[in-house]
Simulated scan of single mutants.
Amino acid sequence: MSEKPLQRATERPASFTKPAHWSNDPVPAPAAPKDEEDPEGLSPTRYGDFTRKGIAWDF
Rank of each mutant, 00 (worst) to 15 (best):
D35P: 11
L42E: 03
W22V: 13
R8D: 00
R46E: 02
A32N: 04
P19H: 07
P13T: 12
P26Q: 10
E11K: 09
R12S: 15
T45L: 13
P26R: 14
A14R: 05
F50Q: 05
A29H: 02
P44K: 04
P39D: 01
R8A: 11
P30S: 10
K18Q: 07
S15F: 04
P44I: 08
S43P: 03
G48N: 08
K34I: 11
D49V: 09
F50G: 00
V27P: 04
H21F: 13
A9E: 05
G48Y: 02
E36P: 11
T17N: 08
R12M: 11
K18M: 08
A29T: 13
T45I: 10
E11G: 01
A31T: 12
E37R: 07
S23G: 14
K34H: 14
G41H: 05
Y47F: 12
G48W: 04
P13W: 08
G41F: 01
P28T: 01
P30N: 09
P13Y: 06
P13Q: 05
D38G: 05
F16C: 10
S43M: 14
E3T: 08
K18V: 11
T10H: 06
V27L: 15
D35V: 07
F50E: 00
P39L: 00
F16L: 06
E36L: 02
S43Y: 15
R46T: 04
M1I: 08
A29M: 06
T10C: 04
Y47R: 09
K34C: 08
T17A: 00
P33S: 06
S2T: 07
A32G: 11
S2G: 09
E36Q: 09
R8C: 12
L6N: 11
V27D: 10
T17F: 05
M1V: 14
D38T: 12
S23F: 02
M1F: 10
E3V: 07
S23Y: 02
P28K: 08
P13G: 05
F16G: 05
Y47W: 14
H21W: 12
F50P: 03
D38Q: 03
K18D: 04
M1N: 11
P13F: 12
K4S: 09
F50H: 10
D49F: 13
R12T: 10
Y47G: 02
K34R: 06
A32V: 07
